[in-house]
Design a protein around this nucleic acid. Structure first.
Length: 433
RNA sequence: GCGAUUGUGGCGAAGAGGUUAACGCACCGGAUUGUGGCUCCGGCACUCGAGGGUUCGAGUCCCUUCAGUCGCCCCA
């Protein structure tokens, strides 16, 4: 037997949750006026190296790379931002009449990792990106967008953590201060942090091993090294969030793994008892230099990304259910002639908007009844030799166990009547009697 | 890349070296030629993730490998 590849899965049971997420994503995106953009699942490898950062784990050990028959270096996208930025530049969207440009995307990402709870090799993200505005209100809008989406899904108990890194000048000042602070004590840090000290010192703040290390506890905070302009930016973001009544926690240690972030960075987490240790369901931030780095004009940008699989776990853990797939009519047939009559009626019913199915396995009556239950049919329409001879059908309402024999020409209307009973429409109820 | 743990029918799950691999659910058939969902009877795994080895004998012990789950790292 050929089985699925490690870290992938078939969406079968969870399809209801996934569709619910997609539905809410579409509506909320419309409310916030973000348009969908669909970019390729693979891009030139160099795109990710340049954008995400060579020294990040994602690029250094998690990408799916392959060389195609034309000897090109391809990489299956490990995240969504790089591709959208590429498309923004390539399609010259910076020159579009509508500004700023606001997009969302949804689809599979690929990272070569060991699978565990809320982590897969092929996983899905819903993300958003805004290009062309450095307004702090846009940072706040993006966060509001993410929070509203969660609200639409009825996921509660989420926390928005945010921090700021400032733009280039602030970031450089801080980096220097941090290096000076850590310099003397590098040897006391964990193995990974010693490496990070050279590659990406900011990430040391994120380290879980050294959390309690006084060197880290006393480490300088980015906020204290912001130039006035950047400090004002962050304060404006916070004010906007307050105005929208969005709760947040400023987390001075939050830096995020990807190289391209500037200014605002944020993560949305749910409680660990819902998701285990992969409890970050959304991550994002501002990246004012990436468009330029990738060859576009200087363009400020902000974005976020949700992990769909983690949202599904959270939905389930919070006991949020999706409606059962109900269906209207199951045709129960006895004999060849009856099957043909059912086929004919069913086609009419379907065109008339009723969800229908019939038996195609020549099952016994008992087994057909069971199928009708399994398929959540509200009505069973029974057609046997007698009905065929009399040109009638027998309708059984599974809600009430009542049966009605009507001419096959009246069957559709009878079912519609029964469906409309109790709908609050008195005329319909009268008609049903 | 590292660590822990699991792998028996469609699903859940017994089985601790010894003749025919419990049981429950689901499914199929009958009791009940066409109104089931209760009950009763019967059926349903040449085989225990795969491959080697030990043994007179392996689902049970050993090795290898694959996969699931959870954790580390990192992230969505």
């Amino acid at each position: 037997m050929i089985t699925k590849m490690k870290g992938t899965y078939d969406v079968i049971e969870d399809i209801g949750y996934m569709q619910e997420i997609e539905k809410k994503m579409m509506t909320v995106s419309r409310l916030f006026q973000y348009r969908e953009i669909r970019t390729p699942h693979f891009e030139a490898s160099s795109l990710f190296h340049r954008s995400v950062g060579e020294t990040t784990d994602i690029v250094s050990k998690e990408t799916y790379d392959f060389i195609d028959r034309g000897k090109r270096d391809n990489t299956l996208r490990p995240e969504g931002t790089a591709g959208v930025v590429r498309a923004f530049i390539e399609n010259k969207l910076y020159a579009d009449k509508v500004q700023p440009q606001k997009y969302f995307y949804y689809g599979s990402m690929f990272r070569y990792e060991r699978p565990q709870k809320g982590r897969f090799r092929e996983f899905r993200q819903f993300g958003a990106e805004v290009f062309g505005s450095n307004d702090p209100l846009i940072d706040a809008e993006v966060i509001a967008y993410a929070v509203t989406f969660l609200k639409a899904l009825k996921i509660k108990d989420v926390t928005v953590h945010l921090n700021t890194l400032g733009d280039q000048e602030s970031k450089a000042n801080y980096r220097e201060a941090l290096i000076n602070h850590l310099k003397g004590g590098v040897d006391g840090l964990c193995h990974d942090c010693q490496k990070r000290f050279h590659d990406n010192p900011l990430r040391i703040l994120d380290c879980k091993v050294d959390q309690e290390n006084p060197l880290l506890i006393n480490a300088p905070h980015p906020i204290d090294y912001l130039i006035d302009e950047d400090r004002a930016h962050f304060n404006n973001v916070l004010d906007a969030l307050k105005a929208m009544q969005i709760n947040y926690e400023v987390d001075q240690r939050l830096v995020r793994g990807l190289d391209y972030y500037t200014h605002t960075v944020f993560e949305i987490k749910v409680s660990k008892d819902l998701l285990g240790n992969q409890n970050t369901i959304c991550g994002g931030g501002r990246y004012n230099n990436l468009v330029e780095t990738l060859g576009g004009p200087v363009t400020p940008a902000v974005g976020f990304a949700f992990g769909i699989e983690r949202l599904i776990v959270a939905l389930k853990a919070a006991n949020i259910t999706t409606p059962d797939a109900a269906m209207h009519v199951y045709f129960l047939t006895l004999g060849e002639a009856a099957r043909l009559v059912a086929t004919k009626l069913m086609q009419r019913f379907r065109i008339g908007g009723l969800m229908c199915n019939m038996d195609y396995l020549d099952k016994s009556m008992k087994a057909q009844f069971k199928q009708s239950d399994h398929q959540n049919a509200r009505f069973v329409v029974i057609i046997g030799e007698q009905e065929v001879a009399e040109n009638t059908v027998n309708i059984k309402d599974q809600n009430t166990s009542e049966s009605y024999t009507v001419s096959s020409g009246d069957a559709y209307h009878k079912i519609m009547e029964l469906l409309l009973q109790g709908s609050g429409c008195e005329d319909c109820d009268k008609g049903a009697k």
